[in-house]
């Protein structure tokens, strides 16, 4: 089955296109959380944000901002939410990276506020260490202390080569 957003880009969809060029599509999908929601996505198929080339992501962000202004002006709203659901665990339900821009008004029935967790200083300290530490590019090949006798010769020779 084809990708829904690739189909929109190809013009095979009930969704309406507001703007399209070689790199970006701006569309009103036929489904939305509230009427007026507009979707910005790269023309090329990239499943998640981490796989979108930097220059395309930058263009998508600038376009999302312009769409947000166009929603303020065209739909006379007093707010917008800009949301990226990145990965199925985040609720992403189409395998194509997209930025959603959702018009907001007072008492519109939408509520995106999450229950806030309270973290202890220890938890904050732990998270700080986790996220500030550099991600190792390559996993260390060997953990010398856990090596069984059988692998010793091979690992020693690998160490020597390294």
């Amino acid at each position: 089955m084809g990708c829904e957003y690739c189909e929109i880009a190809a013009g095979n969809s009930k969704s309406l296109i507001l703007h399209q060029d070689a790199e970006i599509v701006v569309a009103v999908k036929d489904t939305s959380v509230i009427p007026g929601q507009i979707t910005v996505f790269p023309t090329e198929h990239h499943p998640i944000m981490e796989l979108v080339p930097d220059n395309i992501l930058q263009k998508c962000s600038i376009m999302a901002n312009k769409v947000s202004v166009a929603i303020f002006e065209g739909l006379d709203t007093t707010g917008t939410n800009v949301i990226i659901q990145n990965g199925t665990a985040a609720g992403q339900n189409r395998p194509h990276f997209a930025i959603e821009i959702i018009p907001r008004r007072e008492n519109d029935g939408l509520d995106f506020q999450w229950p806030q967790k309270q973290l202890t200083e220890d938890e904050l300290g732990y998270l700080f260490n986790e996220l500030t530490e550099d991600v190792p590019e390559e996993k260390p090949a060997i953990k010398p202390k856990k090596v069984s006798g059988k692998d010793n010769y091979l690992l020693k020779s690998l160490k020597r080569k390294a």
């Binding site: 659901q85 990965g87 665990a89």
Partner: peptide, 15 residues
């Protein structure tokens, strides 16, 4: 984690 959400609220009405 298996995903991230990117979230922006513009204006009081957007929370």
């Amino acid at each position: 984690v298996a995903g991230t959400s990117i979230f922006i609220a513009n204006g009081l009405a957007a929370g």
